[in-house]
Amino acid sequence: MIDVDALRALRSVAALGTLVRAADELGFTASAVSQQLKRLERQLGVAVLAPSGRGVVLTPAGRALVDAAPEVFQALERCAEAAQSVSAGAPRGTLRVVAFSTGIRGLLAPTLAGLAAHCPDLGVRITEQDPDEALHSVDAGTADVALVHDADGLPVPLRPSLTRRHVHTDVGDVVLSRAHPLAAGDAPLGEGDLSGHAWVTSPPGTVCHQWFRRLVPGEPDVRHLVDDFATQLALVASGDVLALIPRLARPPLGDGLVARTLRRPPKREVHAVWRRSADASPAIRALLAALSTRDG
């Protein structure tokens, strides 16, 4: 019989390209992963990896095995879910969640106390990962659920083995000092209101910088490029600059700052993603219910 752990190791090597990276993902040493794969080759009687420079590549037999692996993992997961459903479907064990930083701060952290109260036998383990890495972790079976946001309005593509549910719409606001001329008033700000002012913004290549460039076209007066939102707020407090900050990412403003809504605010959609074979998981359903309550 094929060793399931070795099959999972081969799948990680195929996705990540090296034994070292696969070992890091799986929580083993590279030597342990190598031994797993050698054992797999002995079981099959064929080579599954071949050296390639400083890395490795899959042999045709290894590629065929990896292509067939999702059916194996899905069948095993359905077996586990069937066993859990016999026990009244009570969420228990450890739910492994991967999510982007502000999703952890704004969505997951506020749900944990309520989830623990309703599901005392369920533990949640959270790891910060960017959306692409998070989707890989769920598909590879090293995480159970991922929270991901879309990429500049485009939903992240999913493999057929994964499914998703919308859990939140994140919106950007302009944050400024209460002493700033734009601080007064309640009406949403338009593009004309924002021209001619100085800014601190996230660096190019980030979603928030893309938001900013659409909100303030042309050649805006960008004084500072800062990735950390708390640091952006410290600069805003000086009174000289504005910042465009997603609500999920926004720390408490304090008395000296104010957030103004926008007439056409930038948005990003947040989805929970899990394996289709885990649809019946009581733990995943409990987390989705908690996130739904939070968003409502």
Rank of each mutant, 00 (worst) to 15 (best):
I2Y: 09
L7W: 00
R8M: 10
S12T: 07
L16F: 11
T18S: 15
L19P: 01
V20C: 08
G27I: 07
S31N: 06
L40D: 02
R42S: 06
S52A: 11
S52T: 08
G53R: 10
G53V: 04
R63G: 10
L65V: 08
L65N: 02
V66H: 04
L76C: 11
C79K: 12
A83D: 14
Q84D: 13
G89S: 14
R92C: 10
G93W: 07
L95V: 08
A99R: 05
F100A: 11
S101F: 00
T102C: 03
T102M: 02
I104N: 03
G106C: 03
G106K: 04
L108H: 01
T111C: 15
L112R: 15
L112K: 15
L115A: 12
A116T: 10
A117L: 13
P120L: 13
D121L: 15
Q129V: 14
D132E: 15
D132T: 14
D132K: 13
A134L: 00
A134N: 06
L135R: 06
L135H: 10
A146Y: 05
A146T: 08
L147S: 11
D150P: 02
A151I: 07
P157L: 05
T163K: 09
V171F: 12
D173G: 05
V174N: 09
V175R: 04
L176T: 13
L176E: 02
L182N: 14
A184Y: 10
G185A: 14
D186E: 13
G192D: 14
D193L: 03
G196T: 06
P204H: 08
C208H: 08
V216K: 04
P217Y: 02
E219P: 07
E219G: 06
V222Q: 10
D228W: 05
D228I: 06
F229S: 09
A230C: 10
L233V: 10
L235M: 14
V236I: 07
S238I: 00
G239N: 12
G239Q: 05
V241I: 12
L242N: 09
A243P: 06
A243H: 07
P246N: 11
P246Y: 00
P251Q: 14
P252Y: 04
L253V: 13
G254H: 03
G254N: 06
G256N: 06
A259C: 07
L262P: 08
R264Q: 13
R264W: 04
P265S: 13
K267P: 02
V270N: 00
H271F: 03
V273A: 06
W274C: 01
R275F: 04
A280M: 00
S281K: 01
P282G: 05
I284T: 13
A286M: 07
L287N: 04
A289F: 01
T293Q: 13
